[in-house]
């Protein structure tokens, strides 16, 4: 029997673990135990970049990580996480599962990875301690933690916030003591990292869609029998579909939970004003990476 190591960075309460458990159970059942899957959640096998490096070199077999963590190799894939790229989830699914997404999966192969599908972390939203964020001016002068995406740094810079680099592991403390007053993450992260304890306001800005990528070491995949490959790809597709469904279902539940924890949730966002304000971010991206993928996404999501 072949044992596969599946790694992700989310805690066991997260849907990434739900997906992993489903994947494990189904793969093991349908292969009659010929394939075994061991799950390593919570970054046990390393940070996102370490997991991706591990899946490429084959010391990890399957890894799940934010698509933005692949943009060092595939800069054009940053198009998926551009601010306000996907107005709704349906268009995101359509693009990611269609030709455009297949194209990205195909270019992963030159880096030793087999793309198995795109689960999601949902939309990123802004939380802070100052007040609801209705218009771009509400972010002016806020010290804000931003991840390593250039587009998001550019975006919050444009909106007048003061983007700061702080590792996620230190973010709770930084928010608690006030080193920064704001951050942006998908809802699930706000809940599992308990940011609601140190943040008063959550605004559903939905400013960027956050796809995950489920990838497998290419050699390992090619080394499996045809039947086993089929099991892996089929189960992966089912797992992704299930995770997305749960993600939508769970989002309202999680928002309610955050409200129960005392967060004031604001849904009144002037999206048009935000989209107008961050236009230069798209232009920057197109200047650096060309407009092919952006146009393809816009075309496909029509």
């Amino acid at each position: 029997a072949t044992t596969l190591k599946l790694a992700h960075a989310a805690p066991e309460s997260d849907l990434q673990q739900t997906l992993s458990v489903f994947f494990k159970e189904q793969v093991e059942a349908r292969s009659n135990g010929e394939l075994k899957v061991n799950i390593f959640p919570h970054g046990q096998l390393g940070s996102d970049s370490q997991m991706i490096d591990g899946a490429r070199s084959g010391i990890i077999d399957i890894a799940m990580s934010g698509l933005n963590n692949f943009t060092g190799m595939l800069p054009e894939a940053g198009a998926f996480t551009l601010p306000f790229m996907f107005p709704d989830r349906e268009s995101a699914y359509k693009v990611l599962d269609g030709e455009v997404g297949q194209g990205v999966s195909a270019s992963m192969e030159q880096f030793g990875l087999k793309g198995l599908g795109y689960p999601e972390n949902g939309y990123r939203n802004v939380s802070n301690n100052r007040g609801p964020v209705t218009t771009p001016a509400d972010l002016d002068g806020v010290r804000m933690r931003v991840n390593n995406s250039k587009a998001l740094n550019d975006m919050f810079d444009l909106l007048g916030a003061n983007p700061q680099q702080i590792p996620v592991a230190e973010l709770y403390t930084a928010l608690e003591t006030g080193v920064v007053d704001a951050q942006d993450h998908p809802i699930g992260v706000v809940l599992s990292f308990k940011f609601y304890e140190v943040q008063d306001y959550l605004t559903l800005t939905q400013h960027a869609y956050a796809p995950l990528a489920l990838v497998m070491n290419l050699d390992k995949f090619n080394g499996l029998s045809e039947d086993e490959q089929k099991i892996i790809t089929e189960v992966a597709a089912e797992a992704v579909a299930m995770q997305r469904e749960l993600s939508i279902e769970k989002e309202e539940e999680m928002i309610a939970e955050l409200e129960a924890e005392g967060m004031k949730v604001n849904r009144d966002v002037d999206s048009a004003a935000f989209q107008e304000a961050v236009k230069p971010v798209w232009q920057n991206f197109i200047d650096e990476n060309g407009d092919a993928l952006v146009n393809a996404i816009l075309e496909a999501s029509k």
């Binding site: 490096d53 070199s57 060092g72 800069p75 940053g78 030793g112 390593n148």
Partner: peptide, 19 residues
């Protein structure tokens, strides 16, 4: 050596340097 070669075209968004 293997990782250096594999990541020479893996460019950090914030520094522009290869990882």
């Amino acid at each position: 050596v293997q990782q250096t070669i594999a990541n020479w075209h893996n460019i950090s968004q914030l520094t522009g340097l290869p990882t």
